[in-house]
Measured scan of single mutants.
Amino acid sequence: KELVLALYDYQEKSPREVTMKKGDILTLLNSTNKDWWKVEVADRQGFVPAAYVKKL
């Protein structure tokens, strides 16, 4: 499975999103959308801005 690194803190703004902290390592589930990537963090799945994460 592919992992991404959170480059910035992100606070979810809708139930479809997830909160992450800078430095978090997240499991990447889907990166087909260039703006929003689906990730899993702490047993929750949701979207984060693609610009806020980097593939490892």
Rank of each mutant, 00 (worst) to 15 (best):
K1T: 12
K1G: 10
K1L: 14
K1W: 13
K1P: 13
E2Y: 12
E2C: 15
L3G: 03
V4M: 05
V4K: 00
V4I: 08
V4P: 00
V4S: 03
V4L: 10
L5M: 14
A6E: 01
A6M: 02
L7F: 04
L7V: 07
L7T: 05
L7W: 04
Y8S: 08
Y8H: 12
Y8C: 14
Y8G: 06
D9F: 04
D9C: 06
D9R: 04
Y10M: 01
Y10L: 02
Y10P: 01
Y10F: 08
Q11G: 08
Q11A: 13
Q11N: 13
E12F: 06
E12I: 07
K13P: 05
K13A: 11
K13Y: 05
S14Y: 07
S14W: 07
S14M: 08
S14A: 09
S14C: 11
S14Q: 08
P15D: 12
P15H: 10
R16H: 13
R16G: 14
E17Q: 11
E17A: 07
V18P: 01
V18T: 06
V18W: 05
T19P: 07
M20N: 00
M20S: 01
M20R: 00
M20L: 09
M20H: 01
M20V: 09
K21E: 06
K21M: 10
K21C: 12
K21D: 04
K21P: 00
K22N: 04
K22H: 06
G23L: 03
G23F: 05
D24S: 08
D24H: 06
I25Q: 05
I25D: 00
L26W: 04
L26Q: 01
L26T: 01
T27G: 10
T27R: 12
L28R: 00
L28T: 01
L28S: 01
L28M: 03
L29N: 03
L29E: 02
N30T: 08
N30I: 08
N30L: 10
N30K: 07
S31C: 12
S31K: 07
T32G: 10
N33F: 09
N33W: 08
N33D: 15
N33G: 11
K34S: 12
W36P: 01
W36M: 06
W36R: 03
W36Y: 07
W37E: 01
K38Q: 13
K38S: 07
K38R: 11
V39L: 05
V39S: 00
V39H: 00
V39Y: 01
V41G: 14
V41P: 02
V41I: 15
V41R: 15
A42R: 14
D43I: 07
D43M: 10
D43Q: 11
D43F: 10
R44K: 11
R44D: 03
R44C: 05
R44I: 07
G46A: 03
G46K: 02
G46I: 05
F47N: 04
V48M: 02
V48K: 00
P49R: 04
A50Y: 03
A50D: 01
A50Q: 07
A50I: 04
A51L: 12
A51D: 09
A51H: 13
A51K: 15
Y52H: 06
Y52L: 12
Y52N: 05
Y52K: 07
V53W: 01
K54L: 14
K54G: 08
K54T: 14
K54M: 15
K55Q: 08
K55G: 05
L56G: 03
L56W: 09
L56V: 11
